[in-house]
Amino acid sequence: MLHESQAMVRQEHFYYIQQAISTTQVSSLLADMRKSLDADLNLARRYLDQLSALFEEETEIGVPEALLLPRRLDEHGTSTKGGLAGWQVRRVTAHIEQHLDTSLVTEELARVAQLSTGHFCRAFKASMGETPHAYIVRQRLRRAQTMMLKTRDTLSQIACACGLTDQAHLTRLFRRAIGTTPMLWRRDRQHAA
C-alpha cells in the first residue's frame, strides 16, 4: 500500500512538472496539499515541494530543478528527534555526492557521521525520510537525469558514471522511480528543448 502511494506521488510529481505552469496546476496542488495536511504531513510536504519546483529557477548546472527527482523526500530542514545533527547531514550528503560514481556502503557513511552503523541508519532515516540506500539511489538517478540532459554520453556511460553496474541497472531503477525508461525520458526532454 505504501509503495503504491509513493508511486502515485511520483507519477503526480512528474505529471505536474511536465506541464506549463498554470493557475489550474497551482490550484490543484494547493487543494491536494490542504487535503493531505491532516492525514499525512509528509505527503503535504511533497505537494509543497512540487509547487515550489514549478517556480524554481534552473539548478547551478543549468538543468531545471523541476525536471529532476526531488533531492530528498523530507526537505523541511527541521531537526528530528533521534535524527542526525546538521553537521552530520551536511558531511554525509557531501560525501555521497563526491563518491556517487563508486560503491557506497553504509559502514563508510556511518564513519563519516561518526556513529555506529545501526545508529546511523536509524538517525539517517529519521532525518531524511528514507534509508541511506534509497537516498543514494535517488542521487544517482538525479545525476543520471542531469547527464542525460547535459551530455551526449550513452546510457551505458551514464550508468557507470553514476555508480550503477550497467545500463540495465539504470533502466530498472529509473523505470521504478520515474515510471518510464531513461531512453524515452531523454528523448522527450530533448524534443521539448
Rank of each mutant, 00 (worst) to 15 (best):
M1N: 07
H3W: 11
E4D: 11
S5E: 11
Q6S: 11
Q6R: 14
Q6I: 07
A7R: 07
A7F: 15
M8Y: 14
V9Q: 12
R10V: 00
R10W: 15
E12Y: 12
H13W: 15
F14I: 12
F14D: 14
Y15L: 14
Y15G: 09
Y16L: 02
Y16M: 04
I17M: 15
A20E: 14
T23I: 04
T24G: 03
T24S: 05
Q25P: 00
V26E: 10
S27D: 14
S28C: 06
L30T: 08
L30S: 06
K35A: 15
L37G: 04
D38N: 12
N42S: 13
L43G: 01
A44C: 04
R45V: 08
R46S: 08
R46I: 07
Y47W: 10
Q50V: 10
L51C: 13
A53T: 04
A53C: 05
L54Y: 08
T59V: 03
E60N: 09
E60Y: 12
G62K: 08
G62V: 11
V63R: 08
P64K: 05
E65Y: 09
E65K: 15
E65Q: 09
L67R: 06
L68H: 05
L68F: 13
L69P: 00
L69W: 00
P70D: 12
R72F: 06
R72K: 07
E75L: 03
H76L: 05
T78V: 10
T78A: 03
S79G: 05
T80H: 09
A85S: 09
Q88W: 09
R91K: 14
V92I: 08
V92W: 04
Q98F: 04
H99V: 06
H99L: 06
H99I: 05
L100F: 02
L100M: 01
T102P: 00
L104I: 15
T106I: 14
E107M: 10
E108T: 14
A110Q: 10
A110G: 03
A113W: 10
S116T: 13
S116R: 12
T117S: 11
G118W: 09
H119E: 14
F120I: 05
F120M: 05
A123E: 06
F124R: 01
A126P: 01
A126L: 11
M128Y: 02
M128G: 00
G129V: 11
P132F: 08
Y135S: 05
Y135M: 02
I136G: 04
Q139H: 02
R143Y: 00
T146R: 12
T146K: 08
M148N: 03
K150H: 03
T151N: 02
R152F: 02
T154N: 06
T154E: 06
S156N: 13
Q157N: 08
I158V: 05
I158N: 03
A159K: 04
A159G: 03
A159L: 04
C160E: 09
G163S: 04
T165K: 07
T165E: 07
D166T: 02
Q167K: 13
R172W: 02
L173S: 06
L173G: 01
F174C: 02
R175W: 07
I178M: 13
T180E: 15
T181Y: 04
P182E: 07
M183P: 00
L184V: 11
L184W: 11
R187P: 00
D188W: 13
D188Q: 11
R189A: 12
Q190T: 05
Q190P: 00
A192Q: 13
